[in-house]
Every structure is written in C-alpha cells, then in structure tokens.
Amino acid sequence: MRALSFSRALALAAIVLGLLFALLSTTANHALMDFVIRLASLAIFATSLNLLAGYGGMVSFGHGMFYGFGAYFFALTMQRAGVSIPVAIVASILGSALLAAIVGVICVRLKEIYFSFVTLAFQMLIHATILAAMPLTGGDQGLRGGVPRPPFLGLNLSNQKQLCMFSAFLLIVCLFAMHHVVSSPFGATLRMTRDNADRAAYLGIAVDRVRLKAFIIAAVFASIGGLLQALFVSGAYPDFAYWTVSGEGIFVIMLGGTTTFLGPLLGSVLMLLLNDFVSRFTEYHGLALGSVILVVALGLRKGVGDFVVDWLSARSEADASERTKTTEAAS
C-alpha cells in the first residue's frame, strides 16, 4: 500500500479540515451535523481497530471495551471532577492507555484466534464490571444527569454546530495521527510482526513489545471515539462497552476494506447511511443489513474500499499495458 509522506499527509489533512469547516459553517442542517458527530466517533474507533487488526494482524473481538471505557471515563471525569473538556480528554487518554497496558500484557502473548477470544473475555469482564459498579456507573441504567460541557477556548460544545466542528477536527487529527503511526518505521515493524512473527523475532524485534505498543495506541484512539459518543448523547451506557460495539467495528472495517488506510472511514459512512436509511423504512433491518453483508462478503470478497482500489489499479495497469501495446505496434 502506498503511504503519503508526513508533509503531504499534513497538507492533505489541513485542506480537508478547511473544506469541512467551510461546508459545515454554512449548513443549518441538523441531520447532517448529527451525522458528522456520529461519523467522527465511529470512524475514529473503526480506524483504530484496523490499526490493530489490519496492520497488526491482531483481530480483537474486544476493542469496544476501550470505546466504552473512554465514554465512561470522560463522562465521569466531567461530572465528578469539574475540569475542562481538554483536561478530561487527556485524562481519558491516559486512563485508557493504562487499562490497555494491563489488558494488553496478557492478551498480546496469545496468537490468532486465541487473541480474539481473550480480548472478548476481557470485554465481557469490563461490561460486567460496569454493570456491577452501580454507585459509580449507574449500572445498567447508564450514567445519568447529562455530561456537563463548560465552554473552553471560546468553544461551547452544548451548541450542536460547535460540537460538530469539534468532532470534525478530532476526526481529522486522529486520522492524521494514526496515518503517521502506520507509515512510520514502527508501522513497518508492526506489519512485519503480522506477516511473519518468527522472522521478526529472528531479526531482533521484541515482537510482544511491538504488539503491546500497537494495542495501547489503538486503545487510546478507540477511547477518543467513545468520548465523542458520550458528548453526543450526553451520557454513557453499558451498551457502549458491550461486545456488539466490537462486532460493529469489525463489520465496518470489513465493509470499507482493511488494506486501505481510509477503508474504515468509508465503511463508517456506508454503515451509518445504511443504518439510518434502513431503520426509517423497516423493522426488519437485520434482514436488510444481513443481506447487504452477504453480498459484500461473498460477492466482492473484500471491503468496498479495497474493491475500488483494486479496480482502479487494475484499470491503470490495463491502460499501461494497452499503451505498451500501442507503442509496440507503432514501432
């Protein structure tokens, strides 16, 4: 896969952010603004899962635990500590990094499907703990009473439009940061541990340590996705930490594609559109969603993003060979 250089990625991120801001500042469409907020939350989460699963070969069934943890940690910090939003965000990042370090030390030693199982078990444990820690988390009813959103730096996140702008900003920043991770030397090492762990170890790479690092990085970004969701619904619910969140993440990256960096973003867009569109018209969304998945999984046999990329490169190859043929014929 081609990776952009740091400066080009930075420039691209800045341009996209500028365009997004320009677009969003003119709109008064509430549905669009809600969509952007939810998209930011889901896309950051999905891209972080792809960092782990696609680039690191660690298929986590429990990545949602960090999404839920981020939402709870952030909302609780805002409710109890009375700090400003950026402080709470930093605190959530540190908190989830710590949790990921503890869980990760145990998980990353396991390979393949066993890694998936143990992450799933941890997710269920975290979920069970949230339910059991009633006085702190509110148990199954979730964290009630709203998440306070005091203004900071002239930003008032109680205002939907400003929250939307803020989400777009976080989305671009997180995507840029994750892109930087995968295109860095660390990203290359991570891919090597995925493709051939034995050879990597032979070359003197501490495989488990690399995997642990990736696990923590992915968890941090997942928690940012979670805290955006907490800002959106002004609360936190045990569902955020349930295995279904991990399942949805897997679905999103498969839908969008795991071999392109922006595949999960595309998958998130498709998933949200699909969900919103289908649930407007039928209660049998399982049937509709399931059929779409089957078509994508068995028809394309890869994510939509991968499919498009492959198709484009196949076409340019075809063009190239066509050109060679013409030149040959001409000579």
């Binding site: 809600d34 939810r38 979730g142 969701q229 959106f232 619904v233 609360g235 619910y237 569902d239 955020f240 649930s279 407007r280 209660e283 969304h285």
Partner: peptide, 13 residues
C-alpha cells in the same frame, strides 16, 4: 421509529 433498544440509537432517532 425503531430504537433497537439501544440508548444511543434512541437519542439519535
């Protein structure tokens, strides 16, 4: 509208 018994979906809907 169906909320699928999910609080975040209920809020969105």
């Amino acid at each position: 509208r169906d909320s699928k018994a999910q609080p975040q979906e209920a809020a969105r809907v």
